[in-house]
Design a protein around this nucleic acid. Structure first.
Lengths: 137, 137
DNA sequence: AGAAAATAGTTGACTTGGAAAATAATTTCA
DNA sequence: TGAAATTATTTTCCAAGTCAACTATTTTCT
């Protein structure tokens, strides 16, 4: 810490994000799952039949990128598409049994990284961090 | 805020990072400069003759990605490479006059986004945020 | 010394990401 | 109603990223 750029919040944020993202990526790689894939699995498990647009917003991806990732997930048999019931333009995604199974296998990995961070920072710092980050959006 | 995944720190961090990164990208786009390009310019201005490896670490990029971005920057006339003096394997990067000029043009853009964030959060929150983020690496 | 290992950076083959255009369905409103 | 505007998603085409292999140079070690 002594370059000019690390006094900028955007940089500190990018650096912390990179560190956390890389460590999560590495942990999930052993199970052959990408971080964003996990987000989709987890989101769909909690609320099935999410549309592509809403999902893209939640999992922090641009729509075209999500479309392509979902193509891959369909090929792997993790999810399947279904035309929207009331609005035919929409596409609803649902987990397959394999998708649910994969999610269950991998959830623990994400949780333990999260717990590691929590115990590193401490309960109150985590709350503070969440509060501050929330205000940046 | 009510999906299962936004209780994870990795997710909140990614979301905040995305928001800040996108807004900075948009602001810099008007000047035809990528966020990472700006980081290189700023870093080299403060300490010239940085090596590729060290620069990659600082600007948060993988070495092959940096090599290609620097190729582009050389084509645009922003920087030039020079073989390392003591260690011939190393490559030292230096700003050209145009590179310095370009940096001066865009620095204000980055600073004003940073100031906007600072005034949004307040002095003490910014300090707290930097402190917490620093502990994640 | 000099062969083997390590290090810095780049290259190449391949995959992924992004902006803008295209497609298809739904709304709006004259 | 039905033409024009809007919305949801995908496609296309090109730019950028990644992993692994490669080159060149320097270190290590016996």
């Amino acid at each position: 810490m002594k370059n000019p750029i690390d006094s900028y919040i955007s940089y500190t944020l990018a650096a912390a994000h990179r560190a956390v993202h890389q460590s999560l990526t590495a942990a999930l790689k052993e199970h052959g799952v990408q971080v964003e894939v996990w987000r989709v699995l987890e989101t769909l498990d909690a609320e099935p039949s999410q549309t592509m647009g809403e999902l893209a917003r939640i999992v922090l991806m641009n729509p075209p990128t999500l479309t392509k990732m979902v193509d891959r997930m369909v090929m792997e048999g993790l999810v399947h598409r279904q035309a929207g019931k009331t609005d035919q333009r929409q596409v609803n995604l649902m987990l397959t049994d394999l998708g649910r199974k994969r999610m269950a296998q991998v959830r623990g990995v994400v949780q333990s990284q999260d717990e590691a961070i929590c115990s590193l920072l401490g309960e109150s710092e985590v709350a503070k961090l969440n509060n501050i980050l929330g205000r940046l959006m």
